[in-house]
Design a protein around this nucleic acid. Structure first.
Length: 644
DNA sequence: CTTCGGTGTCATGTA
DNA sequence: CGTACATGACACCGA
């Protein structure tokens, strides 16, 4: 027992020295901690199922429908979406106030996620957190600014924002305490990772892992990321006083948020707190974890091989990394946010509204009324204008003439349609309202249309030739349509436009009241049918082009979004790789400074740190995947020993 | 000469 | 049932 205590004491001291020497500071994107909470849920055991909910929810509610379920980028896509939604709910992160709010939200999310089964010791931890600086410390946990303020109070430390807590304690402990805080930073960061980031981390760790290891990557990372959350030991009663004397963890506890303490809570942890309460220790020196003897509760741990690190400062990580990393992430966030804003498509509303308003203002109210009518009857929009020599013959059929423009406008896209020849000529020919040229883009290039400014009465047959002379016989002859020629050949006193655009009732009256021959009736019907179909075809093609244009724009937008997500993915993978490497190194260092029964340092190849569901961290021998391999390793080691 | 885009027309389906 | 409309398919024309 004494030997075990000795070893453990030495190991503890060495650990503190180690942590003070490493001084590895992890700059992790602050937002990652928000993601990592699900992983905590996983390791907390009963609440592990919680991890499966976010992606599915996002898959159903967000833009996941656009991504194939089996798409490898789906996870990153949803991670980015979730990040974007968090930022969006709080506004633009460009503004300092918004930034602060976002950080608060982030930590609150962690709090929410950390409310797991291991909160049984919350009361104990809360008692230790009820120090005079409780409120300020809570603020510092959530707001990096607070951490900065505390840091300014102790500039001599120069350990960064997280050294604030250490400033309240004895100087000989400051460095070690601060180092421990910083050492635990990557652990907490990783602990807050979700499965997505865990996979990314696995990639990095797998790349960095020792090739001699045969453990599956999952086991490896689970053993590493939780290595120092807590270490259960046996027979460590005397260490309690040691910790109290050294105040190793007291400084740490000041930067530990309540929820983080909950995460690390364990049976040993709770007992330790009870013991600490009995001691006349100041509230500032109250420890969040104590080395406590748990008897044989953790039989799988080599006696005296583990450290009682039931609780470690988790929240300090947020303060550590929040300031630096946020700027880096802010770029992506800003880009994502404003890309989303741009994707709203609201910028086009202004132009559309302007166009629409302009058209409405220029449109005769009567014309607007006609737009509602199915027949598209246009009124005497051309009657008021001195059109052409034939304008004097304006009659009821003129309405049907103008109706042509109205009737063909099946949809508003006609507004921005390219003016056809007919439109240009029509506007030059008749100084009618601009609304006609806008809303009546039928581009019916029949020369008779131009030659009939006088929408002739059906009862009067008007020669188109004299009228065509005004615009030029060449144009007329050239643009005379086949139907127009047929109408001339059949002596039909109506232009194609008239036939096409007159209301059905009027058309029927014309058919019945003019004594047309059956051939003429058939031709009139064909002309009308073809004319309407031609307009329909024009509209259809226009819609098709618009659809193609819209799809092309969407493709460009999605490509830009894809590029942005890929950049975020790379950034996340890089960060996770760095965290995994640091955790691995830290685990290796810790194991190297622990001593086994024979006083030899633990071989990192044979031992690893394992985090249990109850929050305790134990030193566990590496389990080979199969017995054969384990035996083979033993034999190999024996051979090596013999060689040595 | 071929290719391609625009256009008109027909057939068909739908409201 | 007739009409209007939409759309695919085809043919024609001109660059």
């Amino acid at each position: 027992m004494q030997i075990a205590k000795k070893y453990f004491t030495e190991g503890l001291i060495q650990l503190t020295i180690l942590l003070s020497l490493i001084g590895v500071r992890v700059d992790i994107d602050s937002y990652l901690s928000g993601y990592y909470t699900p992983l905590i849920e996983i390791n907390l055991g009963p609440s592990s199922a919680y991890i499966q909910t976010p992606f599915h929810n996002l898959r159903d509610t967000l833009d996941g429908y656009s991504v194939h379920p089996k798409c490898p980028e789906l996870d990153y896509f949803f991670a980015s979406r979730r990040l974007l939604d968090e930022v969006r709910t709080l506004g633009s992160p460009r503004f300092p106030t918004q930034l602060t709010a976002w950080l608060v939200h982030q930590v609150s999310a962690s709090n929410r996620a950390d409310c797991g089964p291991s909160t049984s010791n919350n009361t104990d931890t809360s008692s230790g957190l009820e120090s005079p600086g409780e409120g300020a410390r809570d603020g510092s946990e959530h707001l990096p600014d607070s951490g900065q303020e505390v840091c300014q109070t102790t500039p001599e430390l120069g350990q960064g924002p997280c050294s604030a807590g250490a400033s309240r304690f004895s100087k000989e402990e400051n460095h070690t305490q601060v180092k421990e805080e910083e050492e635990t930073a990557p652990l907490i960061q990783l602990a807050h990772s979700s499965t997505l980031e865990q996979e990314s981390l696995l990639e990095g760790i797998t790349a960095l892992s020792d090739p001699a290891r045969h453990l599956p990557p999952t086991i490896d990372i689970n053993e590493h990321w939780s290595n120092l959350l807590s270490l259960s030991v046996t027979d460590l009663d005397d260490l309690d006083s040691l910790v109290t004397d050294t105040d190793i963890t007291s400084a740490i506890s000041h930067d530990v948020s309540l929820h983080d303490a909950m995460v690390s809570g364990s049976g040993a942890f709770g007992v330790a707190l009870d013991r600490s309460d009995a001691q006349p220790v100041s509230q500032q020196q109250r420890t969040l974890f104590r080395l406590e003897s748990t008897g044989s509760s953790h039989s799988d741990v080599s006696p005296g091989m583990a450290l009682g690190l039931a609780a470690l400062p988790f929240a300090s990580v947020c303060n550590l990394t929040g300031n630096e990393s946020h700027s880096a992430v802010g770029g992506c966030l800003d880009e994502a946010v404003f890309d989303q804003i741009n994707q709203l498509g609201l910028e086009g509303l202004d132009t559309i509204d302007n166009q629409l308003m302009g058209c409405l203002e220029s449109i005769n109210p009567e014309v607007l009324e006609d737009l509602d009518s199915d027949s598209g009857l246009s009124l005497e929009s051309s009657s008021g204008s001195p059109v052409s020599p034939g304008s004097s013959e304006m009659s009821s059929s003129s309405s049907s003439y103008c109706e042509d423009e109205c009737g063909a406008t099946g949809y508003s896209s006609d507004v921005d349609s390219v003016p056809s020849k007919g439109i240009v000529d029509y506007t030059t020919w008749s100084p009618v309202d601009l609304s006609e040229s806008v809303w009546h883009d039928h581009s019916y290039p029949s020369p008779s249309f131009f030659n009939q400014p006088s929408v002739t009465l059906p009862h009067k047959s008007i020669k188109e030739e004299p009228l065509s002379d005004d615009d030029g016989p060449m144009l007329e002859e050239r643009e005379l349509s086949r139907d127009e020629l047929r109408a001339r050949a059949m002596c039909i006193p109506f232009s194609v436009l008239q036939i096409v655009n007159m209301p059905v009732e009027e058309f029927l009256e014309v058919l019945d009241g003019h004594g047309f021959s059956p051939e003429q009736v058939t031709l009139l019907r064909d002309i009308r049918r073809r004319g309407k179909n031609k307009l329909a075809a024009q509209n259809c093609r226009k819609r098709k082009l618009d659809a193609i244009t819209g799809l092309q724009e969407e493709v460009e937008r999605l490509q830009a979004q894809r590029d942005r997500l890929l950049r975020e993915k790379q950034l996340t993978a890089k960060t996770m790789g760095a965290v995994g490497q640091q955790i691995k190194q830290l685990t290796r260092d810790v194991l190297a400074r622990l001593r086994d029964e024979s006083g030899q340092p633990l071989n990192p190849e044979r031992y690893t740190l394992l985090c249990r569901a109850n929050g305790s961290v134990v030193v566990q021998p590496v389990r080979r995947p199969t017995v054969s391999t384990a035996a083979g390793n033993k034999t190999d080691k024996r051979k090596k020993e013999k060689k040595q």
